[in-house]
Amino acid sequence: MNIGRRQFIHSAVLGASLLTVPSKAADIVFRPGTGAEPGSPSPLLLDRAKAALAAHNARIRNHDLLAIADFSKPSRDPRFYVVDLRSGKSDTFLVAHGKGSDPSHSGWVQHFSNVHGSEATSAGSYLVGETYFGQYGESRRLIGLDPQNDQAEARAIVIHPAWYVNRSLIQDQGKIGRSQGCFAFAKDDINVILERVAPGCLLYADKV
């Protein structure tokens, strides 16, 4: 009888410990800095961006910050991450993709293109360039560093504000508008973007 009681108690304790595993696992998965929480880029995309930073080390001046556009996500979601590599913290923003990458205006990037006139988004590593004032106001040039986006400068792919990036459109139609391939941001966010994603930073765009 004593053996039976010990086995019963052992089984009960083991069962209770197994029941607590999911909550502990959740705590680990969603702990800040893991990349599994909504405000952080996926670990895979972050690793790709870090690898790009290392590969283009000679051309990047700021090695403490990464700007990452996750085009795996729909345009209704904040999918542009500004990551502080020193603290591991990140901030998220809405960003538009190009019309040519989403011809049916589904809100999702269907494909990338580096072709002139495609009005599509290009994946890859970008060096953030100088500030200028264009048709959308204060904007920032981008220089493509990879074969899949090396026409970015010639195609005038830039960072700029746009009226069609706002939460009202998301409420009305479930998505924001599309750019001509540029990284277009809400007017309320552009000052923060231009301040933090400064000349000399790396911007990395991709799908996972």
Rank of each mutant, 00 (worst) to 15 (best):
M1K: 15
F8A: 15
H10C: 12
H10N: 13
S11N: 14
A12V: 13
A12F: 06
A16D: 01
S17D: 03
L18W: 03
T20L: 15
V21P: 01
S23T: 12
K24P: 02
D27E: 11
I28Q: 04
I28W: 05
I28S: 00
G33V: 03
G35H: 08
E37Q: 14
P38Q: 12
G39E: 01
S40E: 15
S42M: 00
S42I: 00
D47Q: 09
R48K: 15
K50W: 04
A52Q: 05
R61C: 04
H63T: 11
A67W: 02
I68K: 14
R76L: 12
P78C: 05
R79T: 01
R86A: 12
G88W: 13
D91K: 15
T92E: 04
T92Y: 03
A96R: 03
K99W: 06
D102P: 05
D102N: 08
P103M: 11
P103A: 09
W108T: 03
V109H: 08
S113F: 06
S113A: 15
N114W: 07
H116A: 04
S118T: 02
A120W: 00
S122N: 00
G124I: 05
Y126D: 03
G129Q: 08
Y136Q: 13
G137W: 07
E138H: 13
S139I: 06
S139R: 10
I143A: 04
D146M: 09
D146Q: 13
D150K: 14
D150C: 05
Q151R: 15
A152N: 02
E153V: 03
R155P: 05
V158D: 01
H160S: 07
P161S: 10
W163V: 15
Y164F: 15
L169H: 07
Q171T: 06
K175E: 02
K175W: 05
I176E: 08
G177I: 11
R178D: 03
C182H: 04
F185Q: 05
F185V: 06
F185R: 06
A186G: 13
D188I: 08
D188K: 13
V192G: 05
V192N: 13
I193F: 07
E195M: 09
R196E: 01
V197C: 12
P199A: 10
P199V: 09
P199N: 09
G200R: 14
Y204H: 10
A205C: 10
A205D: 02
K207F: 03
